[in-house]
Amino acid sequence: MSEHDALLVDLDGTVYRGPDAIEGAVETLEALRATATVSYVTNNASRGPDEVAGHLRDLGLTLDTDAVVTSAQAGAAVVAEQVEAGAKVLVVGTEALAEEIRLVGLEPVRAEDDAPVAVVQGHSPDTGWRILAEAALALNRGAVWVACNVDPTLPNERGLLPGNGSMVAVLRTACAREPMVAGKPAAPLLAQAIARVGAQRPLVVGDRLDTDIAGAHSVDAESLLVLTGVSTAAGLLAAPAGQRPTYLGADLRVLTGDLAATAVADGDTGGFTARREGGELVLEGDGDDTTAALRALCRAAWASGEEWTGVRADGTPAEKMISALGLDPA
């Protein structure tokens, strides 16, 4: 972390899964507080920053509420830039999102009959047809539309659940419109987090290529992908340039070691090398670090613009790595 003055850490799938901390996350983040500012930046708009901070403290983390930046806050800020002070905003989401709308000087409402000039949409496990219908009426009348995030899924301890992006898709289909997006991968949420701590060299950390890592690219920041949540080895190998991380680790514990060794472009590959043979990626070498083997495969996969069609092992150690990474031939 010597090259970075702030850590912008995702939550779902990175620090915790469901209510429980991921192994090593709390100890790592507590250790890093001595050398860098640690902020928690979440696309989940269902809870207020005070509730999120309370959950993190219950897990054993030390932080002030200001260390939490949510997509609800970013969404409210984006709405406030689009409408006049005091304007009515239809809220599709929790009361925490409604409170953020109040805090930026706007009036939250829940019905189209109240003539809202904007719609703000964030995740809520209670979102149903009736509030989506109210939002559709407002959007078809021309209201401004801001989505706190467009994550299609939300990880928890049971698996992947529908995220806010899946609910956004309902209104996209019904209204043939596209929302402005406040959360990752769009820039507003991370830009707000960076500005709050005055960071010059932030490191964005998360488990999703399409939100956390793409979001880092949107604010020209370096990034670390951890394999504790949504994105997989296969997804990483196929990632377009705008979703490729600077660093790769199994989990947050890589932050207390030699971070440079985890750089995908020129970090440690643990004795493994990879090459292309036709459309295949071929891994060879010997070692026991799956993320090191994955870094070697990434270099081969990203070396040209051509798509790869499969992954093959040259030798038993490489075969074990491919299996551990879930890259076995179908």
Rank of each mutant, 00 (worst) to 15 (best):
V78C: 04
R275I: 13
D288C: 02
G93H: 10
G159V: 09
N44E: 03
G310H: 00
D151W: 13
V9L: 14
A53I: 09
L225C: 11
N140Q: 15
L189R: 05
W145D: 15
A263Q: 12
P152G: 10
T14N: 02
E30M: 00
R57S: 13
V254I: 15
V230W: 05
G198F: 09
G13M: 06
D328W: 05
V311E: 01
A313I: 02
L224G: 08
V83C: 10
T35Q: 15
A118N: 12
R47Q: 14
M1S: 14
A191H: 07
E307K: 10
T232Y: 06
D314I: 00
T273I: 13
L103C: 05
A293I: 09
G267W: 05
L327G: 04
V120S: 06
R208P: 12
L171K: 05
L190T: 12
I22C: 01
I101Q: 09
A135K: 10
L203E: 13
L56N: 07
A98K: 11
I213T: 14
V68M: 05
T62N: 00
G305H: 09
V230N: 11
V104K: 11
A176K: 08
L90I: 12
W145K: 13
E27K: 00
L106C: 07
A21P: 06
E319P: 00
G278K: 10
E51R: 14
K320Y: 05
G48Q: 02
H55R: 15
P49F: 01
D220E: 15
G257A: 15
A6Y: 06
D266Y: 07
A238M: 02
I213C: 10
E157G: 07
